[in-house]
């Protein structure tokens, strides 16, 4: 949950001065920021039941996963849902498994469970590497992958990682199931392809090639902070040269960014300094960060480049050269 971004989305927002990214007048009107307004709590035991409750209450209902974004917003009274639909008791929403060519992760699987998974560590180590950089151990034991990717907060780390892995999101709603690619899911800060009454039930990840190299480079002010800028890289190497590469960026625009050009530029190279520099420039070119407490827009754009360069170097070093 990022305050400045949320401010822009609240109806209190008024922009009187173009020089500042903050509105005049805070949305806070006093009161204790630990006390949410009244709401009804629903703990459904199946996805079907959850969808029925969401459908019954329309936009007055919100699904609740780990709660580490929604509940602070409710305490600040920036979100005032009248109905909370807690997905925590739905067993089918949790778990990590291999399914054919895919890795499937249930939506309410916590970050701590991602970290513990030997399957993920072996097949897609970037997930553990990223999860370990999210918040702190307490939050990771509650925060879920589904919440992290479905909330649409550009500060969240997993959306870019899922884009990097070319994951698909499995969504359930009144109309049944539909699949949306992570690279098509994000429309703006807190705006996603998720429709009213729909919940994300699982993430399907095409298992990355054996021997691939990956890295998630995140610059942050301190433990628990969102990225000033971060870059995910997954690449494969053949004959000492990059054979395939995906590069994605966190928190340097209103959505995660798939830096297609940056990835394309390193293919065929041995990640030499000149190529890395060109790729970092390509990544920077698509960013549109906001000035906030983490730094100016110019700084954060530059850091997207630095993180991209470092992630590429690290991923290349980690990859096993194929025949």
């Amino acid at each position: 949950m990022q305050l400045a971004l949320l401010l822009q989305r609240t109806r209190f927002y008024r922009r009187n001065n173009e020089k500042s990214c903050y509105p005049t007048g805070s949305q806070f009107h006093g009161g204790n920021k630990l006390i949410p307004g009244p709401f009804t709590y629903h703990p459904p035991s199946s996805v079907a039941e959850a969808i029925a409750v969401l459908a019954a209450h329309g936009d007055e209902a919100r699904p609740l996963a780990g709660g580490h974004s929604l509940i602070p917003m409710m305490k600040l009274r920036m979100a005032t849902p009248e109905h909370l639909v807690d997905l925590g008791a739905i067993k089918e929403l949790s778990g990590i498994r291999a399914d054919g060519a895919d890795l499937v992760i249930g939506a309410t699987t916590t970050q701590a469970e991602l970290i513990k998974s030997d399957l993920l560590a072996a097949k897609a180590p970037i997930i553990r590497e990223t999860a370990l950089q999210i918040a702190d151990p307490q939050i990771r034991s509650k925060g879920t992958l589904g919440g992290n990717v479905a909330n649409g907060d550009p500060g969240n780390d997993m959306p870019a990682v899922m884009q990097c892995l070319n994951a698909r999101y499995v969504l359930h709603g009144k109309g049944g199931e539909r699949i949306v690619a992570a690279r098509d899911f994000y429309q703006g800060a807190y705006f996603t392809a998720l429709q009213e009454g729909e919940i994300l039930v699982a993430v399907r990840i095409p298992t990355p090639a054996a021997g691939h190299g990956s890295s998630y480079e995140k610059l942050k002010r301190k433990i628990g902070d969102y990225a000033t800028a971060a870059t995910a890289v997954i690449l494969t190497v053949s004959g000492g040269k990059v054979a395939s590469a995906a590069v994605t960026l966190t928190n340097v625009a209103s959505t995660p960014l798939f830096a297609e050009e940056a990835g394309r530029l390193v293919i065929g190279s041995a990640c030499d300094a000149a190529t890395i520099k060109r790729a970092a420039e390509a990544a920077k070119a698509i960013t549109d960060p906001a000035t906030d407490g983490r730094g100016t827009a110019a700084y954060r754009r530059e850091m997207a480049g630095v993180m991209t360069a470092r992630a590429l170097v690290k991923a290349f070093a980690r990859a096993k050269t194929g025949a």
Partner: peptide
């Protein structure tokens, strides 16, 4: 504790106000 020129106090929460953890 920072103010913008319109008098908004920005960063008055532990999200932005720097309290270092044992890591930093």
């Amino acid at each position: 504790i920072k103010y913008d020129e319109m008098g908004n106090v920005v960063g008055a929460s532990f999200m932005d106000f720097f309290i270092p953890t044992a890591v930093e």
